[in-house]
């Protein structure tokens, strides 16, 4: 099958890749570019484990074709921490023990980033609805919601 050349930016870095036209961005990230921090839980857009930001917008990378990344800026879990250490969202997930197995964690952190980029002081209901697309089977969400609340508070304090 002939492949398509795609130029994109991933976490601020210019990246070129070849992909089959039907390959998803998720598959390209994981299998072609070895950015395996983005996880596959369903490949049908139902679980959010593959959440990434595409030009700042939260998407399931399993529902985006690799070729659609052309000319776009992709932010994955690998791009959330800065050179000066963990992002406050990541730190609060650790402090609140908001992960058990951790497979949903990258997607939840990316989704939380999108939420807090848009809503500085979300209430619990807003957080729960924003994260309703990110399935977690281990935690019952309690500690995740608290971590997001803590992160929102910390980021508001920093700002």
């Amino acid at each position: 099958m002939s492949k398509v050349q795609v130029e994109t930016r991933i976490n601020g870095e210019g990246v070129e890749f070849l992909c089959e036209p039907q390959q998803t961005l998720l598959e390209v990230l994981r299998e072609t570019l070895s950015r395996t921090g983005t996880k596959e839980g369903c490949a049908t857009g139902d679980c959010g484990a593959c959440s990434v930001l595409l030009d700042g917008r939260l998407v399931c990378s399993c529902l985006v074709l690799g070729v659609e990344a052309e000319g776009k800026e992709v932010t994955t879990i690998e791009g959330i921490a800065g050179n000066d250490g963990l992002h406050p969202i990541q730190q609060k997930f650790l402090e609140r023990a908001a992960l058990q197995c951790g497979i949903c964690t990258p997607g939840l952190i990316v989704a939380t980033k999108a939420l807090l980029d848009k809503h500085k002081n979300p209430d619990e209901e807003t957080i729960r609805y924003w994260l309703a697309g990110n399935l977690c089977r281990c935690t019952g969400y309690d500690k995740i919601i608290r971590a997001v609340q803590d992160a929102a508070e910390e980021l508001a304090y920093e700002a």
Binding site: R35, T36, G37, T38, T76, I77, E78, I80, A81, L86, Q90, F93, L94, L99, G102, T105, P106, I109
Partner: peptide
Amino acid sequence: DGVDKVTG
């Protein structure tokens, strides 16, 4: 093992 799990 936490940091590795929140950073991918």
